[in-house]
Design a protein around this nucleic acid. Sequence first.
DNA 1: CGTGGCCTTGAAGAATCTCAAATAATGTGG
DNA 2: CCACATTATTTGAGATTCTTCAAGGCCACG
Lengths: 244, 244
Amino acid sequence: MPIPDPAPSPTQCSSCQQRHVCLPSGMGVSDTLPLDKLGLKRRRVQTGQTLYRAGDEFHFMYAVRSGTFKSDLQLADGRTQVSGFHMSGELMGLDGIADGRHASSSSALEDAEVCAIPYASLLELAGGSCGNSGLRHAINRLLSREIVREHSLMVMLGSMNAEERLASFLLNLSQRLVARGYSASEFHLRMSRAEIGSYLGLKLETVSRTFSAFQQQRLLEVDKRHIRITDISGLQRAFELQVH
Amino acid sequence: MPIPDPAPSPTQCSSCQQRHVCLPSGMGVSDTLPLDKLGLKRRRVQTGQTLYRAGDEFHFMYAVRSGTFKSDLQLADGRTQVSGFHMSGELMGLDGIADGRHASSSSALEDAEVCAIPYASLLELAGGSCGNSGLRHAINRLLSREIVREHSLMVMLGSMNAEERLASFLLNLSQRLVARGYSASEFHLRMSRAEIGSYLGLKLETVSRTFSAFQQQRLLEVDKRHIRITDISGLQRAFELQVH
DNA sequence: CGTGGCCTTGAAGAATCTCAAATAATGTGG
DNA sequence: CCACATTATTTGAGATTCTTCAAGGCCACG
């Protein structure tokens, strides 16, 4: 029962609150202004609703305006693996450029809103002014950043134990929340234990046990999805890879 | 004892053997021709030598002309994790765009040769003709493909057991070799058990044991680094994720 | 022919998973 | 507003997979 999206007024990148983390990030003002010409449409997505599915034709990248998303990959046998959580200012759907179809699915973990960025227009804009290398570089950088983000994920999955993975996950969340003006030490998880587990390559029971272990070590206070980090540096120690 | 690189004559993309898999891949001829203007320099890299290191300033992307490379990520404690193996036509160094420094290191597993692609020139070329959206799209697609490639790695590391990982690795290798005109079923591994293990998130002993297990199951014949796949579809079954 | 690197194999140990059950939180329909 | 079904989370105990430690073999190379 998808509810038709209302169509709010177009959005200007140059005056957007998220411009420092979003698409315009790192671009000079002169490069940012042309982005306003895109006349980005917004779209609301309710909790649990899907923004796009793996296999869908790729036409838009999406920038999170508010709320939280998860993206997941489909495995051959139908199961899924969470490949990322996305908060305001972060871009989603970059994997669709590769072959014109989305390679992952994205759905909202809470009521959310996105900007839909038409890829074709962006491509045009990046060359149209016959010298907008700032925008071209910015786009490349965004894609490259996604590669780097996945690098750390690979390291996590390939070389870390359960405690290191969860600590790394929480510290990363904390960092991104701070960048958005929220508390570094106290926050509400938008995702379930199962989703965290899928993301970290662990079973949900292991995630739950590791939360309990951190609590016993007085690193965290955990009340369901409410987290309070009581010992950040201790957590950072847990995150540092142990030498075996 | 690095040996100074000879400087062979510049290379033309439009007439290159690798053009169908490399940078020009998927571009029309009209988009490919301008690439020749880059006047790409080649560089020889001997077995074991490093092409670039994590932290080095990023100026070039590299296309493999011949030979095989591995790239690896540095962990906080100094250890490394292999993040990819690269063969002819494949691009390396894309993670450096993100912040102007290489995020991984690359070294040759056998004597090799690369084309060095100056990023700045490429950026210029992508807009200079005031309408070269084909090239812009091609660059984005290359970056996006790298994202998709890392997706499958993440699935492998997050959801597969040792047999599935090794089977998936061998089948992927086989596929890429076929695309280059080599045998699908018989090939020589350029990397050690330890390097395979690092890539697959396994210890070298586990890799070795899994090779032995495949041999006992009559899926492979293994003689050190020489591999003969005797039952491709059996291997594909092992690769398909088991439903537990 | 000895040395070092790489690979294989065994046995014991550790980490994580599976299965199971209890509890808490949430939503539903009456 | 309550009874009930459903979902999320925690925790325990045993099974499984992978790792660790250790030893030995093979091969290339000086």
